[in-house]
Lab assay of single mutants.
Amino acid sequence: DHDVVPEDKFQETLHLKEKEGCPQAFHALLSWLLTQDSTAILDFWRVLFKDYNLERYGRLQPILDSFPKDVDLSQPRKGRKPPAVPKALVPPPRLPTKRKASEEARAAAPAALTPRGTASPGSQLKAKPPKKPESSAEQQRLPLGNGIQTMSASVQRAVAMSSGDVPGARGAVEGILIQQVFESGGSKKCIQVGGEFYTPSKFEDSGSGKNKARSSSGPKPLVRAKGAQGAAPGGGEARLGQQGSVPAPLALPSDPQLHQKNEDECAVCRDGGELICCDGCPRAFHLACLSPPLREIPSGTWRCSSCLQATVQEVQPRAEEPRPQEPPVETPLPPGLRSAGEEVRGPPGEPLAGMDTTLVYKHLPAPPSAAPLPGLDSSALHPLLCVGPEGQQNLAPGARCGVCGDGTDVLRCTHCAAAFHWRCHFPAGTSRPGTGLRCRSCSGDVTPAPVEGVLAPSPARLAPGPAKDDTASHEPALHRDDLESLLSEHTFDGILQWAIQSMARPAAPFPS
């Protein structure tokens, strides 16, 4: 592969990997390779389809078979030569091979799209000592099968071997295949498990690692696999990028399955594409389908809103127990993405979901129960707010008499603000006073009005108090039968009158 990737590009890729991570280095090298001529790309395919690569990765054979028959990708048995050289000459001794072996032994695996480039050397060096003999053996194999790289107009793939297949390693990572398949204008990513390549439709969760975000852009890794992070704060999961590491605690105790298979379609829109997988259930989501939507993949363990709600429900009964003089119970939860139609709101002032922060849900004790107040519409209280300059209440639009249902020339009671006709409430011909108009209920007259088809109010509507207090003497005590009587009149003013009279009014101040 030294004929494909020059030394300066190799060093530039290593520097970019240390600065921005393996995914960015892979993407940059792939983009550079696509700008080369067809001879360089053909050399790339020839390096990929060597015999030892085909033996190690069985899924490469179907890719090789898909090439046109007129494309010669065979390799000479006596060494490598550029395709432009007409004579089959043995190339001179390859010093770059020693360079590659020494550099890969030092860096474990470079971040390139060629056999030198995919593992994360920093994480491997940190986690190597417990498994040094086995990992050293794996390093000797890295130059042979560490990076199976493929690129063409139909298929483009980048393979990364790992030393996680050490025997006896619980939940060992089998390997990473960062794979971009450009077929019919689409893009897919796969993962390699035990020599087999699994596409998103049959993606397997190998051991402790999972394909957290099938994305090839942005600074985030394709698999949430930063070796420096180790395990999740809650004892979460091992990262795919942690090559040759000792077994780590796999999943939280509440995880239903340690080796679950995540779905390959969004649980909201039932469509495929780039998904984020939940650590607590097999569901996966688009970032845009979450509520609120996320802009980037959160670091650490992530769970959907259903799993978060289940966790909150487990903690909430203990938080609601009476604990005198104790601060509110704080339950730190990872930043969760909410699927459509589901929402768990945190306290005000918290950062938005999706940031690399930890939301704190506070379970406050329930407030003391209070008697429910009568629910009145805002339009129902409008007549009470229509007060004239002299303190006389004006008529609201649409006000109707509670007896006849007519809204023409209605009066407004100064005591309960109900609309009424003087002739309907006082049919006996009582003279109307000039000021202080009161309806039949507030004036103490319980004589029913002779209106055909309208039920008369119940005599129990009024329960006047002592006459010594004029204001308190007109406080009506309405009961269920009074409400039914008012409802039978089918008037809004009657219902409003009952609601206003049912509310307690402050006692009249004593004259000074």
Results as ranks from 00 to 15, higher is better:
Ser378Phe: 15
Pro367Thr: 08
Thr311Gly: 12
Phe492Pro: 02
Pro293Tyr: 12
Cys424Ala: 02
Val315Asp: 10
Pro328Tyr: 12
Pro282Glu: 07
Arg423Phe: 01
Ala288Ile: 14
Ala463Glu: 10
Phe420Lys: 00
Gly273Val: 06
His286Ala: 12
Gly444Arg: 07
Met503Lys: 01
Thr471Lys: 10
Leu252His: 06
Arg323Ala: 07
Gly341Ser: 13
Pro466Ile: 12
Pro466Glu: 04
Tyr361Ile: 09
Pro450Cys: 14
Val344Asn: 13
Arg318Gln: 14
Arg432Ala: 04
Val312Ser: 09
Ile500Asp: 05
Ser306Glu: 08
Ala267Lys: 11
Glu390Asp: 13
Arg432Ser: 10
Cys307Phe: 08
Val360Cys: 11
Pro298Arg: 14
Ile276Pro: 11
Ser473Leu: 08
Gly405Ser: 13
Pro322Ala: 10
Pro476His: 04
Asp279Glu: 09
His421Ala: 01
Met503Phe: 15
Arg318Asp: 06
Glu263Arg: 06
Val410Tyr: 08
Pro332Gly: 04
Cys413Asp: 01
Arg440Phe: 10
Val246Gln: 00
Cys442Phe: 02
Pro332Val: 09
Ser378Lys: 12
Arg440Ile: 08
Cys269Arg: 04
Gly244Tyr: 05
Leu385Cys: 12
Arg270Val: 12
Gln497Tyr: 04
Gln501Ala: 15
Pro365Cys: 03
Val446Lys: 08
His490Tyr: 14
Pro347Asp: 04
Ala467Arg: 09
Arg345Lys: 12
Ile297Cys: 08
Cys442Glu: 01
Arg283Cys: 13
His259Thr: 12
His425Phe: 03
Ala267Leu: 09
Leu290Lys: 13
Ala418Val: 04
Gln242Asp: 14
Gly398Phe: 12
Ala456Met: 13
Ser443Ile: 13
Arg400Thr: 07
Pro256Leu: 08
Thr357Gln: 08
Cys277Trp: 04
Gln313Arg: 10
Arg461Trp: 14
Pro367Ser: 08
Ser473Ile: 15
Ala477Lys: 02
Ala319Gln: 06
Glu390Tyr: 14
Cys278Ala: 11
Leu250Glu: 10
Pro389Thr: 05
Cys416Trp: 02
Leu252Ser: 09
Pro348Gly: 11
Glu320Pro: 12
Thr414Ser: 13
Cys386Trp: 13
Thr491Met: 00
Asp493Thr: 01
Thr311Leu: 09
Ala267Gln: 04
His259Ile: 05
Pro374Gly: 11
Pro328Ile: 11
Pro247Tyr: 14
Cys278Arg: 08
Gly465Arg: 08
Pro322Val: 10
Gln392Asn: 08
Asp409Met: 02
Leu395Glu: 08
Val329His: 07
Gln257Pro: 03
Glu326Arg: 10
Leu352Asp: 01
Glu263Cys: 04
Cys277Ala: 07
Leu455Gly: 10
Leu385His: 04
Trp498Ala: 01
Pro389Ala: 06
Ala284Glu: 14
Glu321Met: 15
Gln325Phe: 12
